[in-house]
Design a protein around this nucleic acid. Structure first.
Length: 292
DNA sequence: CTCCAGGAAAGTC
DNA sequence: GACTTTCATGGA
């Protein structure tokens, strides 16, 4: 199938969107991108303003890549200073993706204290061992595991996926989801703060992981996850918005306290506005692209 | 070999 | 409340 975009109304770039670090399961082979979404292999490429794809409907593509977002408007709202304008210009057409909440939750729970290549490896191993195999074009793909599959897994099997100390957290969170202790569709409809409190109940989910899940899968575009990259950017470029003492304090330690996290994240939500999450994603990708 | 990673949780004061 | 330590492991 094919979808023709009006690039002026709907700026979109597949490469920037898939490579900015928000997704861990897409692979490129011979100019085509392959992902597994909704139990099917989803194959896609972009040539200028044309999206070509297999394994999904036009409506799904529009929804998944948030082509309904008014990106020109969003960019005009978040462009508060020269740094963010630079980041936006560096990656035109980068969209936040509308991920599946369950997969997003486990992925970012695993992302705790790991670099992106290692995270991709963990998620890939989890899918190989606990997902369903799909043969497609002489290649094996795997669906993301269902909650019951991870809920019933042994800790040893999870650790073989290189989860380390995350194994217990993943299994316990999977058990809670498997027991229907969360209604993701309901979380999409309620406000940011209440939805965040719900997510914080899961073991292994702190403020940062919760913000990622809210932004990438629960329609909360104001969420502003603060990781080590955001902390560095803040110290370097936004220090004048904080007390000198505060900047000095967070510079001296590796991790942020809960209160420090909150003051940074809430500053960013006020400063960038209701699309702060988009600003975060542009800044994150921009910072990483410059430091390898 | 050393350093560090899209941090969270438990323990201490 | 704020600060410190612990948690496993692979990629760079």
């Amino acid at each position: 199938m094919e979808l023709k975009l009006n690039i002026h109304l709907t700026p979109f770039d597949l490469e920037n969107t898939l490579q900015c670090g928000q997704l861990f399961r897409w692979e490129k082979h011979e100019n085509w991108w392959y992902g597994v979404v909704k139990q099917r292999v989803f194959k896609m490429r972009q040539i200028n303003n044309i999206l070509e794809f297999e394994g999904a409907s036009v409506d799904f593509v529009k929804s998944y890549f948030r082509l309904d977002d008014n990106l020109p408007l969003i960019i005009s709202k978040i462009s508060r200073d020269s740094l963010i304008r630079q980041a936006v210009q560096a990656f035109p057409g980068l969209h936040i993706v509308r991920q599946n909440p369950w997969e997003c939750l486990i992925s970012y729970l695993c992302a705790t204290y790991k670099n992106i290549p290692a995270i991709k490896h963990m998620i890939s191993e989890l899918s190989k061992r606990f997902g369903d195999r799909i043969a497609f074009e002489n290649h094996d793909f795997y669906t993301f595991p269902e909650p019951c599959a991870l809920a019933n897994a042994t800790l040893d099997a999870l650790k073989r996926c290189k989860l380390g100390f995350r194994a217990k957290r993943v299994r316990e969170t999977a058990r809670m989801v498997d027991c229907n202790e969360v209604d993701f569709e309901a979380l999409k409809k309620i406000d940011f703060k209440t939805a965040k409190e719900e997510l914080l109940q899961f073991p292994g989910v702190g403020k940062k992981v919760a913000d990622c899940v809210l932004l990438f899968s629960l329609e909360k575009l104001e969420a502003f996850p603060v990781d080590v990259w955001m902390k560095r950017i803040l110290q370097k470029h936004y220090a004048n918005h904080f007390d000198t003492l505060f900047i000095k304090k967070i510079s001296e330690k590796a991790s942020l306290s809960s209160a420090e996290y909150e003051s940074i994240s809430s500053f960013a939500r006020d400063y960038f506005g209701k699309y702060a999450g988009y600003a975060q994603e542009y800044l994150f990708h921009f910072a990483r692209s410059k430091q390898g």
